[in-house]
């Protein structure tokens, strides 16, 4: 059975310069699509991946990453809206590249659809009351 999941890989500083993502394709026959990455030598980094492959291979790939010392989490947990801060203005709506913010009738509150979010972070500073938070 094929699975496709969006995950965030958090690299400790010691692993930042190692070629790890490519081994997912080579050793486990997984397809990966890099949605976002921040890799700076000698500091912690992260990659947002869409990882696709057979369930068994996927599980093995995840085990390989975990053993290598990479912390993995599901993407939808990464960008979180602080509901106390959100004013439902709508500034995020057209800034988001994946249209994860939806205007809900009848009162036009802004719904944040986690499943569409790729954690690119554009909304973080585009949000006037700074209600969008990146949680690691």
């Amino acid at each position: 059975m094929k699975v496709s999941k969006k995950i965030v890989l958090h690299f400790p500083a010691r692993l930042v310069e190692e070629a790890i993502a490519c081994r997912l394709a080579k050793d486990f026959d997984l397809q990966f699509n890099i949605l976002k990455a921040s890799i700076i030598p000698d500091s912690e980094g992260f990659i947002v991946l869409e990882l696709t492959g057979e369930q068994e291979a996927y599980d093995q790939g995840i085990r390989f990453l975990t053993r290598a010392g990479i912390h993995i989490e599901a993407l939808s947990q990464s960008v979180v809206r602080n509901e106390d801060k959100c004013t439902h203005c709508g500034a995020c709506v057209t800034v988001c590249p994946t249209e994860a913010f939806e205007i809900e009738p009848p009162n036009r509150k802004i719904h944040f659809n986690h499943t569409k979010c790729i954690a690119c972070g554009v909304c973080l500073k585009a949000c006037p009351p700074r209600a969008m938070e990146l949680h690691f």
């Binding site: 004013t87 439902h88 709508g90 500034a91 995020c92 057209t94 009162n107 036009r108």
Partner: peptide
């Protein structure tokens, strides 16, 4: 052109 608002309609309604 996609549109968005900076004024909160739900806030105004409340």
């Amino acid at each position: 052109i996609p549109t968005s608002s900076l004024s909160s309609y739900s806030g105004a309604l409340e």
